[in-house]
């Protein structure tokens, strides 16, 4: 039994001019839906944005991770389309590699290789670099992050925050146009969070950051509120985040942990 709450999508505040030029918006989701085991996880997601820092807030289980995986082209949409910079990221994997990068919540789920250098070089090789070129670009990436001495470091010796940074370097080395962040800061302490966020801001990539924590998204240009697999509101953080926080507080005072949605 799901809750009978019905949300209607509304627009909070004014969206800045020029940010919704439909023909050229680099991030375009149209009628996007996804199902698992006959249950709708996401439905009717339409989102067009040209903002540099796009954020999505939502509770646990609202479909955030599914959305990030659809946008990275890792899942096949049940309905609708995902186009990033004009690329169908699920169908055209080669083009997708140059277009989108994704940072997962848990670095253990992302790091494939035993040393930092190999982890970074892997994606570059997939983009077509020769071994020597990949080595060169790996060194350059490490240097850019001031971590030249990490080249041969074994991943198993790194701290959690350091592993996050390795994931970030490995993805940014591939120079994606859009970087998808799936709760990348969950469980990290405040200094680590701030350092990683600074690296992200400097990367130059368009950011699509999905989080349950309003604090992560305060400095973003355009926000969307995801609830029960639908976007129920959009707007600038100054308007949307206080509303979101108030609603989360209200729900927190109730008891909705009893519902089992399976």
């Amino acid at each position: 039994m799901g809750r009978s709450l019905v949300y209607k999508r509304r627009r909070c505040g004014r969206v800045a001019e020029g940010e919704t030029n439909l023909a050229e918006d680099p991030v375009r989701l149209d009628g996007l839906g996804y199902e698992a085991g006959g249950q709708a996880i996401l439905s009717g997601i339409t989102l067009h944005s040209g903002a540099q820092k796009i954020g999505v807030v939502g509770r646990n289980g609202s479909g955030k991770s599914t959305l990030s995986r659809l946008m990275a082209g890792l899942l096949k949409p049940a309905s609708g389309t995902v186009r990033i910079e004009g690329v169908d990221v699920y169908a055209d994997r080669r083009a997708a590699l140059r277009t989108v990068g994704i940072l997962f919540q848990n670095p253990e789920h992302q790091i494939i290789f035993p040393t930092v250098g190999e982890e970074i070089a892997f994606g570059l090789r997939q983009l077509g670099a020769t071994a020597a070129e990949a080595q060169e670009q790996t060194r350059a990436t490490l240097l850019r992050f001031d971590r030249a001495h990490w080249l041969d470091a074994p991943v198993s010796a790194l701290s959690q925050g350091q592993k996050h940074l390795v994931c970030m370097m490995a993805v940014l080395a591939m120079q994606p146009r859009l970087l998808i962040l799936d709760e990348p800061f969950a469980g990290l302490d405040i200094p680590t969070k701030r350092q990683l966020a600074r690296h992200l801001d400097r990367s130059g990539a368009r950011l699509f950051h999905i989080s349950h924590d309003p604090a992560d998204l305060a400095g973003y240009d355009q926000l969307y509120w995801l609830e029960q697999g639908r976007i129920i509101a959009e707007g600038p953080p100054a308007v949307l985040l206080p509303e979101f926080t108030a609603e989360m507080m209200r729900l927190g005072d109730q008891d909705d942990l009893a519902d089992i949605s399976a």
Binding site: L74, F104, H109, Q110, I111, F122, G128
Partner: peptide, 21 residues
């Protein structure tokens, strides 16, 4: 479960594809 996640991470960076060369 870990294997599923790694599969996903591989795909996200072009794993199952062959390097171009």
């Amino acid at each position: 479960d870990d294997a599923d996640h790694v599969g996903e991470a591989l795909r996200a960076r072009g794993g199952p594809l062959k390097p171009a060369e």
